[in-house]
Design a protein around this nucleic acid. Sequence first.
DNA 1: CTGTTAGCGCTTTCAA
DNA 2: TTGAAAGCGCTAACAG
Lengths: 363, 363
Amino acid sequence: MENRLSAPTRLEDIAARVGVSRSEVSRVLNGRARAGKSVGAATRDRILEAAREMNYSPHRAAQSLVSGRTNTAALMIVIDRQAKASPFLEDHDAPDELSPHYHEILGGLTYTLNEYGIHLMLAQCGGPNIDPNVAMEQIARSHTCDGLIITDMMIDDVRPAILDQTGLPYVVRGSSPQPDTVAVGMDNAAVGYEAVKYLYGLGHRRILFYNIRRELMVGQGRFEGMCRAREEFGLHATLEYRDDVHHQNGVYTSLLQRLQEPNIPTAIFAEDEISALGAERALTEAGLRVPEDVSVMTCLNARFMRLVAPHLTVLNVRLNEVASQAGHLLAKMVQGEVVERKQVFLQPILEERGSTAPPRGNS
Amino acid sequence: MENRLSAPTRLEDIAARVGVSRSEVSRVLNGRARAGKSVGAATRDRILEAAREMNYSPHRAAQSLVSGRTNTAALMIVIDRQAKASPFLEDHDAPDELSPHYHEILGGLTYTLNEYGIHLMLAQCGGPNIDPNVAMEQIARSHTCDGLIITDMMIDDVRPAILDQTGLPYVVRGSSPQPDTVAVGMDNAAVGYEAVKYLYGLGHRRILFYNIRRELMVGQGRFEGMCRAREEFGLHATLEYRDDVHHQNGVYTSLLQRLQEPNIPTAIFAEDEISALGAERALTEAGLRVPEDVSVMTCLNARFMRLVAPHLTVLNVRLNEVASQAGHLLAKMVQGEVVERKQVFLQPILEERGSTAPPRGNS
DNA sequence: CTGTTAGCGCTTTCAA
DNA sequence: TTGAAAGCGCTAACAG
C-alpha cells in the first residue's frame, strides 16, 4: 500500500476543480455542449484542460449502466477439459489449444468491430460441469456485451433459438440451421461442388472426398454440393466419400489403407490443410507422387498456410472475410439498425497451385 | 417492435414476485444468506425458484459499478491500417491478419483465465490517427478490465511505465525492459545459446543465425545468448549473424544470395517456422538437401506447426505455457494477492527431428 | 448556458 | 432473518 496511487478521477473531481456542476462537465466531455461564443467557451476549455491534466477517463460500468451499452461484442468459444475446444480439434490436442480456424475469425472480427468502436470479448463458455449453452445464455442476459457471434454451427444447433429469447443481437458465423437468422457464411455447397467440378475438369474420375463431420453445418453443406456434382458428372461409381475419418492422422491412416486396395483414386479432396498434409504423407509413403500420380486439394482456412504449404491447390474459404462481414452486420444491429434476417453466403475462390494436375494418361 | 420481448428481469422484479425486499434477494442469490433452518429456508427456496423461472441474470455493469470489478482481463493488441498488427507480420499481410503467435497466446490465456472466472477481451488499440499507448492508457483508466496483458515488448517499451501510473494490475507476456515488472517469458538468451550449442554439438562450425529484430526484447535476448555461445565455442570466424532480413521471402532471398558466395553454412537457425521454410526453399532451389547438406532448425511457436512441418527440429518456446502462467499471475493480482514484481523465464525445449544432422564429413 | 434532480441495477451497511 | 436507505459514477430531463 505504500505506493498507493491517487484515486481515479471522476466527473465530480473535475467539476469541483473547475467550479461547475457534474452535468456541465459531462456535457462538455461528450460534446453535447454547443461551442457557444458566450461564457461557455471559457469554462469549456478549462473543463477540457482539467480533464486532460487529471487523466480523466469515464468509468465504463457507470456509462454502461445508464446507456445500456457496453461497446463490446462477444465471440462464443468453448474450451473444456472434457469436450474439445472445437469440433475441428484432434483428440490428442491439449485443452488450451484453439482450433486454427479461429485465427482468421479473430483477425477479421477484431479488425472490423474496431471500426465501430466495439471491442471483442472471448466468451469462454466451457468449464467443468458447465453446459456451454447455459453459460452463453447467462452472458447474453447479463448485459455483458451488446451482441454475440456464434460459430461452428451444428445441424441441430439450438443456440439461435436460445438467443432469440434473450433479445440480444447476434449473428451466426457460418450457416444456421434456422433460415430466419442473421448469418454470414461460406457457401459450403459450392465448396463441395466446385472441388469435384474442378477435379473432374482436370480429367479425374476416381475421386476421394474427405468431408467434415455431417453433424456440422459445414459438413452437411459440402456433402450436398458434392452430391450435386457427383450427379451432374455421373461419378456415382467412382467418387468415394468419407466423413468418418478426420485430422492429419485419421486421413493418413485411412488413406494408407485405401492405397492397398484396387482402383486407387487419382485425386483427393481433404477437409482442411492439416488433413491434406496427412494425405500427402500417406501418398509419399506409398511411393506415389503429388500431383503426378495423385492430385490433392483442400480448403484454405488460414492465410499463412499459403506460406507453409505453398504447393497446395485450395478453395479459399475466406474465413476472415466471412468474419469481417459478420462483424459489420453485428455492429449495425447493435446500433439499432434493422438487419434482414437471412443468410449471406460468400463464394469460395479457387487458388490453383502445384498439388493438382490432370491424371496420368490424360493430356 | 412487434416482437418486443419482456424487459430483462431485475432484482426488483423477483423481490416483488416473492414479496421480499431487493436486498434479501441479493443476499440469497449471492449466497450471503446462511441456510438457516428458520423462516429463511422457505423464502430462500422461493427466491431461487423465482430467479430461475424468470431467467434472472445480474446486470454486469451494475455489479461492476458497485464492486469495482469487471471479471475481465484485456490483451492489448494493435491492428492498424498503417502500422502492422504485430512486429512479426510481413509487410504484404492484410491488415486484419493476426500474427500466428497470437494463436497460442490466446489459447493459453483464455483457458487459464477461465479457471478464475475471468473473461478475456481483445483490447484493440489500433486505428487511424490513434496512438496505441494512449488507447491502452484509456482502457486501463476506464475500469474496462481488472487487468491487462501486454506482449511483443520492445527494448524501449514505455508501456510498463504508463501502466504503473494507472495502478491497474498488468503482466508482461515476454521480457520487460524494466526488471521491476511482473513478467512471464521465454528465456530468449537460452534460445540463442541452446540453438548454437546444439548445432555445435552436432559438429557444425559454419552456422548462419537469423534473428528477430533487436528492437524487440526477443531479438535482443536471442542475440545475447548467441553471443555467449559464439564466445564459448570459439565461433567468431564462422558464425554468421543477421537480423536485417525476416519472414519467409526475406530469408529465402537472402539465403539464395548467400549460397552463391564461398564457405556456405552447414547449419541455419531461423527465427520462426515460416522463415525456416523460406530457408529450406532456398536450399532446395540451390540443389542442397536438408539435413544431408545443410541442417535447419528454428523455434516452435504454434503447436499445430508440428503437423504442418513435422520434419523441423525446433526449440519449443512454449508460448501457450508462457501465456498460461501470465494468466495465473494476473488472476492472482486481480484478486488482490501481492505478486512479486519480477520476471519469470521458462526454458525452451529441444525437439529433435529430421531437419538437423551432423555436417557432411563428420561421423 | 448551466445547475438540480432523478435514476440506471446492484450491494451493503445499519436498524429493526 | 429481513427491510430501509445510501451510494457506486454517470447521463439526461427539466428548470432556471
